[in-house]
Design a protein around this nucleic acid. Structure first.
Length: 273
DNA sequence: CGCCAGGTGGCCC
DNA sequence: GGGCCACATGGC
């Protein structure tokens, strides 16, 4: 299974590396000209994909799956237009407006985001790879003793709790039960749940508030609200596609705002932008 | 080599 | 409900 799909306003690298999804490896392209490719593990499959100009080139999956996984039916320009005028959003959109929110599998997505609390993206990615190699993401193979040896820190308990819960229902029924099936699983606070709603269940109005989004809204938008209200404020402001705004702002703040903060002797927080 | 990291749960008041 | 704090390690 291989193929090519023409795309518009799509950037594979932004999509893979913006922080919504961790289950990929960059393929060494041996010095060839062109964008680096990725080996992707998602929905229990493995496929390779790279971008050549306006086209997505893939092997190991069929085009229907690729269209769905990469949300090629979404229209970023229309999504941006559905939101209000906003200089900060403009900035973020200018840099990351070609990413697409992926359609991830809810269970794989939950496993990944249970590894995120007080961690960092390189580590999350490494941890996720270890978990896959050890368990194949099968709840039945997620034994405490095995999880403890993977360098997950305190997060091994979260996976253990999730695996226990899912084993009780069965993976298929658990998936079909929707986001409420996360209730009672250790480690699923508001942030993790919002991420799984957004990235795993396709709830595009969801707006996860993490440390970077919190800073952006506080220091740049000058919104002084608690996290709980911030989520609603953002949903209200950005509308049914608020999840895209979240991802644009998140990716931008980490890659462009954060470095400027570090070099700015502490005071460029807002005015320099 | 300290500091910090896509938070959360369990206390205390 | 709000304000602490430990949580277990690795990345930089």
């Amino acid at each position: 299974m291989a193929g090519t799909i023409k795309t518009a306003r799509f950037d594979l690298r932004q999509t893979m590396e913006c922080g919504q999804f961790f289950n990929w490896l960059r393929l060494d392209h041996g010095g060839r000209v062109g964008t680096p490719g990725y080996r992707v593990r998602a929905h229990g499959r493995v496929f390779d994909v790279r971008q050549e100009g306006g086209s997505l080139v893939f092997t190991g999956a069929d085009s229907l799956f690729i269209r769905s996984f990469f949300s090629l039916d979404h229209d970023p320009a229309a999504i941006r237009s559905s939101m209000p005028e906003d200089p900060w959003l403009d900035r973020a959109y200018r840099s990351f407006g070609r990413l697409r929110l992926l359609r991830q599998d809810p269970w794989e997505c939950l496993v990944a985001f249970l590894l995120t609390p007080v961690s960092n993206i390189p580590r999350i990615q490494g941890n996720l790879l270890s978990v896959f190699e050890k368990t194949g993401f099968e709840p039945g193979r997620m034994k405490p003793a095995a999880l403890k040896r993977l360098g997950l820190g305190f997060r091994w308990r979260f996976l253990d709790s999730a695996a226990l819960r899912v084993k009780r229902l069965g993976l298929e029924d658990w998936r079909k039960a929707g986001p409420e099936a996360m209730d009672g699983i250790l480690g699923t606070g508001p942030k993790v749940k919002d991420c799984v709603r957004l990235f795993g269940y396709g709830d595009h109005a969801s707006f996860p508030v993490d440390t970077w989004i919190r800073r952006v809204l506080r220091d740049l938008y000058r919104v002084k609200l608690k996290d709980r209200e911030l989520r609603l404020w953002a949903r209200e402001r950005f509308g049914p596609w608020a999840g895209y705004a979240q991802q644009w702002l998140f990716a931008w703040s980490r890659t462009e705002w954060k470095p400027a903060l570090r070099h700015g002797r502490g005071k460029v927080a807002r005015d320099a932008f």
